[in-house]
Amino acid sequence: MTGTIDARLAELGITLPEAPMPAANYVPFVQTGNLVFISGQVANGPGGLMVGKLGAGYGIEDGQAAARACGLNLIAQLKAACGGDLDRVTRVVKLNGFVNCTQEFADHPKIVNGASDLMVEVFGDKGRHARAAVGSSSLPFGVAVEVEGVFEIA
């Protein structure tokens, strides 16, 4: 039987990617009690890594798309953490977004909205969360965005 969140993903036309494997010596998520901490997910879309630097030729819409791709990877990891049942998610608690950008770039919140908006689209009011949006001089593999998250599950 398809769950409510799976039905919502289908309604939105979203197919989750496979949960990405770690790129170094860490685990993709850790559950402690009813909280799931998901390691930073880089901007990896259908065409591969979304590489670029905001403020140096990589536009706001590109950055938002990259953040959304990070969000999709977060949800894929969350689904794995929930044993495949996203209906166990009771709250998106917090997202931390990192934006690969020039020193002058100041629209970090607009970029990370790509992931934040996705959480609300998919989880509704349970998707509203606390957040940080931080600029960085570089990110792994030169990706434009990386996002990590904390989720509450039943």
Score class of each variant (00 low, 15 high):
109 P>K: 03
94 K>L: 05
91 R>F: 01
133 A>D: 14
121 E>Q: 14
57 G>V: 11
135 G>S: 10
150 V>C: 10
27 V>C: 03
118 L>K: 04
3 G>Y: 14
48 G>K: 08
109 P>C: 08
12 L>G: 06
93 V>F: 05
90 T>A: 00
137 S>F: 11
36 V>W: 01
115 A>F: 05
119 M>C: 00
132 A>W: 05
47 G>P: 02
89 V>H: 00
14 I>W: 12
28 P>R: 09
123 F>L: 12
7 A>V: 11
110 K>G: 07
129 H>V: 08
9 L>T: 13
64 Q>N: 05
12 L>V: 11
124 G>S: 13
61 E>L: 10
100 N>S: 07
91 R>W: 01
141 F>S: 15
149 G>Q: 06
102 T>K: 03
151 F>P: 01
73 N>F: 01
54 L>M: 12
33 G>I: 06
82 C>F: 00
29 F>T: 01
99 V>I: 11
25 N>C: 11
13 G>K: 08
102 T>C: 04
79 K>L: 09
22 P>R: 03
2 T>C: 07
145 V>G: 00
88 R>H: 14
55 G>S: 12
64 Q>S: 08
25 N>S: 14
151 F>L: 03
17 P>K: 07
59 G>C: 12
49 L>H: 11
52 G>Y: 07
105 F>Q: 08
46 P>W: 03
146 E>P: 01
42 V>S: 05
69 A>N: 09
51 V>E: 07
77 Q>H: 10
153 I>L: 05
52 G>N: 07
12 L>P: 04
133 A>E: 08
67 A>N: 00
141 F>C: 15
125 D>I: 09
2 T>N: 15
38 I>A: 10
131 R>F: 13
90 T>F: 00
7 A>C: 10
87 D>L: 00
153 I>G: 01
94 K>C: 05
88 R>S: 10
107 D>G: 10
90 T>P: 04
123 F>N: 09
37 F>A: 09
125 D>S: 12
149 G>A: 10
3 G>Q: 13
92 V>N: 12
140 P>C: 03
39 S>A: 15
117 D>F: 00
72 L>G: 05
9 L>C: 12
85 D>Y: 07
139 L>V: 10
127 G>T: 11
